[in-house]
Amino acid sequence: MAFLKIENLTKKFGGLVANSDISIEISQGEIVGIIGPNGAGKSTFFATVSGFYKPDGGAIIFRDEEIGGKPPETICQLGIARTFQIVRPLGLLSVLDNVLVGAFLRNKNRKAALEKAEEILEFTGLKDLRDKLSNSLTIADKKRLELARAMATQPELLMLDEVMAGLTPKETQEAVELIKKINRTGITLFVVEHVMEVIMPISHRIMVLDGGKKIAEGTPEEVANNENVIKAYLGEKYNAASF
């Protein structure tokens, strides 16, 4: 049984094909990265898998269950949580309350949910900020909160949409450590990232998108040396063959 199997996923916006025939399989415990130039369809892919868009073709199978086209709340209940590229804190709620909203998914009892939320604040290093209004956080902490809140829903698969974009090198390093730590607890991670230095060392496998199509998949080394990938990122002229 495949953990997550995506087959020929297609998503169109009118005439624009944002995702075309993308297939990938993910096994439990992996960290899989998705990279690609701007407009490659990474975010669309994420939004479709997490239920915010309905696919126009193909299948998304999570633990033998077709989830393509199911609403996001159902997908989250099944164990796939996501963060947003543009942070979306529940602004007028405190950091703790943000995480608590996530924790209520698995346990409607306030005391039990609070315990879970506190545990996650500790885990993600947000403990000292627990009573702050989430609106007042720095961008790095807001991204961390996105992560914490998604984790509070106790997912099996966590999808991170550019949680490291816009962070300083030090903050990025902290975020990398956090992602590794999350993975060690047994959570499978699906990570969209722009920052190459970050995604290369943490990913077990990487999928590269360009123009809505999958152009490569493999270990970070394989991908880094793939001709199509170099072409997509640097243009035809820098293709190794032409040197």
Binding site: C76, F84, L93, L100, R149, A150, T153
Partner: peptide
Amino acid sequence: YYFQAIREDEDTARSLG
């Protein structure tokens, strides 16, 4: 908490199940 989450951001609320 759920009501307030919906008030603050519907997409976030949905992403939290």
